[in-house]
Design a protein around this nucleic acid. Sequence first.
DNA 1: CATGAATGAGAGTTCATTCAT
DNA 2: GATGAATGAACTCTCATTCAT
Lengths: 224, 224, 224, 224
Amino acid sequence: MGIQERKERERERRRQQIMVAAKRVFSEKGFSKTTMEDIARQAELSPGTLYLYFKNKDELYASLSLRILQYLQIRLDHVVSEPLSPEKKIASLKDVLYDVYCFEPLILINMFHLQSSETLKNLSPRLLGQIKQLSRKALATIARIFETGIRSKVVIDRPPFALADIVWSLFSGLVVWENSKQFISNKDRLKETLEVAFEIFIRGIGTTATPEPGIEPLKISEPA
Amino acid sequence: MGIQERKERERERRRQQIMVAAKRVFSEKGFSKTTMEDIARQAELSPGTLYLYFKNKDELYASLSLRILQYLQIRLDHVVSEPLSPEKKIASLKDVLYDVYCFEPLILINMFHLQSSETLKNLSPRLLGQIKQLSRKALATIARIFETGIRSKVVIDRPPFALADIVWSLFSGLVVWENSKQFISNKDRLKETLEVAFEIFIRGIGTTATPEPGIEPLKISEPA
Amino acid sequence: MGIQERKERERERRRQQIMVAAKRVFSEKGFSKTTMEDIARQAELSPGTLYLYFKNKDELYASLSLRILQYLQIRLDHVVSEPLSPEKKIASLKDVLYDVYCFEPLILINMFHLQSSETLKNLSPRLLGQIKQLSRKALATIARIFETGIRSKVVIDRPPFALADIVWSLFSGLVVWENSKQFISNKDRLKETLEVAFEIFIRGIGTTATPEPGIEPLKISEPA
Amino acid sequence: MGIQERKERERERRRQQIMVAAKRVFSEKGFSKTTMEDIARQAELSPGTLYLYFKNKDELYASLSLRILQYLQIRLDHVVSEPLSPEKKIASLKDVLYDVYCFEPLILINMFHLQSSETLKNLSPRLLGQIKQLSRKALATIARIFETGIRSKVVIDRPPFALADIVWSLFSGLVVWENSKQFISNKDRLKETLEVAFEIFIRGIGTTATPEPGIEPLKISEPA
DNA sequence: CATGAATGAGAGTTCATTCAT
DNA sequence: GATGAATGAACTCTCATTCAT
């Protein structure tokens, strides 16, 4: 039994080792330019070995995303279950997202690309299913946070799912965009921009915004 | 000279023809799964001919983005130059973005992927330069819109560039995310979500938001 | 039109060129040890070019067999349609088979291996269908020859299809076996053995065999 | 010594166990599609273990043939040594061949493929030697049977080795051909066809064939 | 200018074989 | 002796790109 377990642990460690290597190479060269041999070399393994742990390149790639989604879900569950006011929960949401980014910035970026149907189309149904499911679950959890806010009337009454989509999009958009700017300017400015973005978002969804005194309010133009 | 010109025009028309074909195929199959032969077939040309008009596959791909960025710039310039109140300008911004999306939804999505360093890295410096320049210019124009808002105190005082980054990210995030959901649910819900997103964003950046009467304001938690 | 035709002819010639090269290499190294690169080198083409003319290795391989079967069929049709006595037709059959062997000895051998389900299983349905159909047709034609013999009572009354199977098996068995002995002894003895085999076979199916005078007949033991 | 022996026996049993497994898998998937792991799994052993008993895949494969050849030899020796008339011996030959087929139909088929130079070329000289020797011996034994027939004038005077080659070829041809038809029609018709084939063969080699009364004899055309 | 056959480097993947445990 | 994870050479096939016509 002990042996069984140890083997299992070692197997898992190998998987991690490969994923770490893959992460590094994918991040450097992007998915399609990365070869399995690159990853093998980085992991100090032979190409064949990778296939003992991952069915193919796509699955290896997608596994990375899966881990992030799992991490995200765990963090979100915490936020939901803790006895916080809706305002605090929404504030925590920001921290969670930022932590998720810090957890694996490069893989997160890759994941947002994976979101594009381009890559999605070539995934094994099983893995695709897992990813879909986890994404949906995370979004649902976020929506739930907003729902409590709406119920307690501190958040304006909009479809909670729409709000969830919006934060998530805002987050992913910022991550990708700041990354692409970073490719130019070499500075990680995500934190600051995210702060401002959330500040605005939170003001925007609040039932009462804190007016800056002595100043005319911004009139919201009606949707065409 | 007349001949020169006509040749030039015809050359440009051919380029367009190819880009239209490329657009279609890229949209359908994604960048990496699309072969030059696919595009040639779609354009009813031979593979070799494509190379008379585009240095290579990457350049052809990137040219598509260039067109969108050019369109975006034109529209933004309009907004800036028209004699509108800052509020109206910001409202117009939303319309512009949505129009850009409608102009070429699929290419826009592709462009947001191009934003990822993955593709960016393999571009010719010339083209990369063009894209960078156009992007920067567009963002600067957006920032200028916010700046006027800040100057007239109808927009909260935050770095205008940050605000520009945020709308742009929000926009790109929504486009990509709604598209990936569409891959699942097959409905184009971008318009509605974008409306809500802008409503919130505009409330969020307004110096005075319209309070929903009789309700406690949402307290913004301070950035950690 | 002239151009169309010439292109067609050239395409066909290329196909032949590749098939000739393939034949040579398959014969030397056997199917599974032959790589596409081997064939390309032999044909003085690049590996990629082979795939412009044959969908994959299996199809290239099977095409070789197809040609032999076609040649066989042509020859058999001749035999059937010519105004010969059944005896002469059967005698011609032997010549046809021997000619088929001479036509492409090594490919014929390969074909008999292809007959084994091993290779058969991995063929495209279309090609498999073609091969099956041609084989069946050839066997049916042979059977027809025996049928006329049976009708004219010069051939013993056994199911013509069984007789066809038997000659065909005898032929293929001899070809493969003599070849494998040749691998040892380096002499092509097929002709002689085939002569004896046919002599015996013909005596065996004759309604009256020519007794060698003054000798006791061989008593055929009844099947158990 | 007892220990030595027991070890020897156990080793032999393991070999058998592996060969049985190999037989099964080869039969199902064909030689080249069978992996050593397939065999190991079937034998409920690890891949490495196979190499303790067989030098490599080819040798394992060839060992299977060796067993059949040994079985054949034993049966042939019986026929030769028993005090039977040449006619009976030849009749027995048929039974022996059919029994050999029944003994291991699929391996027999594989063996006939092995006969092709394709596989033969990649065999260790030792094993190749063994196979050659056993084949030759079996063929010689068959030839001897015919020789006695010729001496007693019940078999026409043809080189006994040629006769042996012919039966052997006829047999192998039938086995392979019927098998490939079986792949299509799913019926094992070897027995019946073999009966007819032998009947004809025996009539063909008899010094006097049993004429079917009142019918013109079939004139054997002279070899061209 | 346009063609499209040809190229050939390089990708992902498999699997016979080895060897530390 | 038995294991099975690891190896890495070698395979088939793809496709961006070129160039003779």
